[in-house]
């Protein structure tokens, strides 16, 4: 088991209970997808996993160790986040952005080799290396953000809405890249509003609804689940079906 999350509870202020008793697991080598509507708590989950948000209760075990909510400890343990809306540093060059991803590493030679790996995934970045990140197109920015996440050589890559705001053709490319990264041996936890595509490439998936995990199964199972289809796949022939969990919270 690469990552085990047990009974995670996260609050915003006193009143807003953003994640309620969330438990799930990520296995080595898989693409795990979490789908859910806006405000379901997907991004909250990602920022909690990386250690930036402090859970009120619950346990996060990664590679056998209990993680404290301290980002630099979590990153050096082998997790990396590609955040929603990319969050590049527009005032830094592409190279500097990538090097920020490798901040905790001291092995210069290996970092150089990893750059080659990045260029094999995204050849265009080699030409843009000295350009300011703020001047790139949306698709290229998503590439840099993904590459920046990979530069720390993570065991587990957290990807938050990588298809957001991208044209359909680029969306397809992003999902192909995710599969390629997975084939190269990095485990991926993918959070997406594009439920259909993310379920299609996921080995397993969870459905998050108002802070609760309400469904789980293989990507294919959820893809064929009428309730999931009604709520998330836009192909609603079953209006009356409402997704409800087994009252976990």
């Amino acid at each position: 088991m690469l990552l085990r999350v047990e009974d995670l509870n996260v609050y915003y202020g006193e009143a807003v209970h953003a994640l309620r008793n969330v438990s799930f697991e990520v296995q080595e080598g898989e693409i795990l997808s979490i789908i859910g509507a806006n405000g379901a708590g997907k991004s909250t989950l990602m920022w909690t996993l990386i250690g930036q948000l402090k859970p009120r209760s619950g346990k996060i075990t990664f590679r056998g160790e209990v993680m404290k909510p301290v980002p630099h400890a979590v990153v050096s343990a082998g997790m990396a986040l590609v955040p929603e809306r990319r969050r590049l540093f527009p005032n830094l060059t592409v190279r500097e952005n990538l090097m920020m991803g490798a901040y905790l590493r001291g092995d210069r030679g290996a970092v150089q080799k990893d750059l080659e790996y990045i260029f094999s995934l995204f050849p265009i970045l080699k030409e843009r290396l000295n350009q300011y990140a703020g001047t790139l197109s949306g698709g290229q920015q998503q590439m840099v953000a993904t590459a920046r996440g990979l530069m720390s050589r993570p065991k587990l890559l957290l990807m938050d809405e990588p298809s957001l705001g991208l044209a359909p053709i680029l969306v397809n490319q992003i999902f192909e890249t995710i599969q390629e990264i997975s084939r190269q041996g990095t485990t991926i936890l993918l959070v997406e509003q594009n439920a259909k595509k993310s379920l299609a490439i996921a080995h397993r998936a969870y459905v998050l609804e108002v802070g609760c995990i309400v469904r789980t199964g293989t990507g294919q199972e959820l893809l064929n689940d009428p309730a999931v289809q009604a709520a998330y796949l836009g192909v609603s022939q079953h209006k009356e079906v409402i997704l409800e969990g087994k009252e976990p919270c």
Binding site: K196, G234, V235
Partner: peptide
């Protein structure tokens, strides 16, 4: 067109 926008495919 709507399906394409939401699902990202033709």
């Amino acid at each position: 067109l709507v399906l394409e926008a939401y699902l990202g495919e033709k």
